[in-house]
């Protein structure tokens, strides 16, 4: 334990937390408004990575510009798919009064459709970006590598913009109104249908961005989104479903728990595959002791 690079683990925790933040803030938005966990969220993430990969191979621009275009495309492509999936599948199902279980099954079905379309387009399993990143360098106690820092910056930007969107704009107020009381929102003249479409677009778009950053950091495969979906669920539940600030706090808690937990597990000779088990244990404990998550801590959001 003496030689454990704690500073670096902290950096990795923040980085993991940032990716979870992007993905969980997105998931909690649709979960809170449409009242069901969207399992296709995993594939929205995966699609983001593949979209970025496709664009990066297509373009021959300077690195910063390529990265920006990749992020934008991942956001737009995943976002559009999220919008369409609400318009074509979940919206009509919700209007028909489908049960919670039917909606979950439907979202799983959608996830499989997207996943196997991705496999059909990009066969051959694992892929990785071939962007000319600058070499990793040491700054103080940290080892810095651009793909590690990108999600942190993106989470910061996305978090602040979401905060501004939710509190300062009309659509943001409409989203919060619809989340807290759909009937009342509708009665006060808010077009809740459009609000829901917007949240699905934003949610899937942010998921696509999260997926892109995971993909850029290392290799990725068609099951990439699925592999982190359970952690994202843990974050969402710990944060309290539908709670924006809760999801942000929970993302860093789970990020830290997983990264520190893996180091501790390694002391007992356990593989890093147990990473998900750590968030699972947190998930179970939260559900049993405090099913409303951290919501109470952030009253009034």
């Amino acid at each position: 334990m003496a030689n454990t690079p704690w500073a670096q683990i902290l950096l990795f925790s923040i980085q993991t937390g940032s990716v979870y933040l992007l993905s969980a803030v997105a998931l909690t938005l649709t979960y809170g408004l449409s009242k069901f966990p969207n399992f296709a969220h995993a594939e929205f993430m995966t699609l983001g990575a593949y979209t970025g990969f496709f664009i990066a191979n297509l373009l021959h621009l300077p690195l910063p510009l390529t990265v920006l275009v990749c992020i934008l495309c991942a956001f737009l492509v995943s976002g559009s798919l999220g919008l369409m999936s609400y318009k074509i599948i979940f919206g009509p199902l919700l209007r028909r009064g489908s049960s919670l279980i039917h909606l979950m099954i439907g979202s799983m079905a959608l996830g499989f459709i997207i996943r196997y379309v991705i496999i059909e387009i990009w066969p051959g399993g694992t892929q990785s970006f071939t962007l000319p990143w600058p070499e990793a360098s040491n700054i103080g106690p940290f080892r810095i590598y651009i793909p590690w820092i990108l999600p942190i910056a993106a989470a910061l930007v996305a978090g602040v913009s979401m905060q501004l969107l939710l509190t300062r704009t009309n659509i943001g107020r409409a989203i919060r109104a619809t989340a807290s009381n759909p009937q009342l929102a509708m009665a006060s003249g808010i077009n809740t249908g459009r609000v829901l479409l917007t949240t699905w677009f934003l949610s899937a778009g942010l998921a696509g961005m999260a997926g892109l950053f995971i993909g850029m950091k290392a290799s990725f495969s068609p099951t990439m989104g699925w592999n982190i979906l359970l952690s994202v669920f843990a974050v969402t539940v710990l944060g309290g479903i539908g709670s924006f600030y809760g999801a942000i706090a929970a993302a860093f808690i789970i990020g830290l728990a997983e990264n520190v937990g893996v180091v501790i597990l390694a002391q007992f000779g356990l593989a890093s595959d147990y990473r998900t088990a750590i968030s699972f244990v947190i998930l179970i404990v939260v559900l049993l002791i405090k099913p409303e998550g951290l919501t109470r801590l952030f009253k009034g959001n």
Binding site: L93, S98, H102, A109, Y116, V117, I119, E120
Partner: peptide, 21 residues
């Protein structure tokens, strides 16, 4: 030209959504 296994998974997904509808 396409892998029938992949197509089968995609069709399954579509089928289950149609059943739900």
């Amino acid at each position: 030209p396409v892998d029938p296994i992949n197509v089968q998974y995609i069709l399954f997904g579509i089928l289950i959504i149609l059943v739900l509808f």
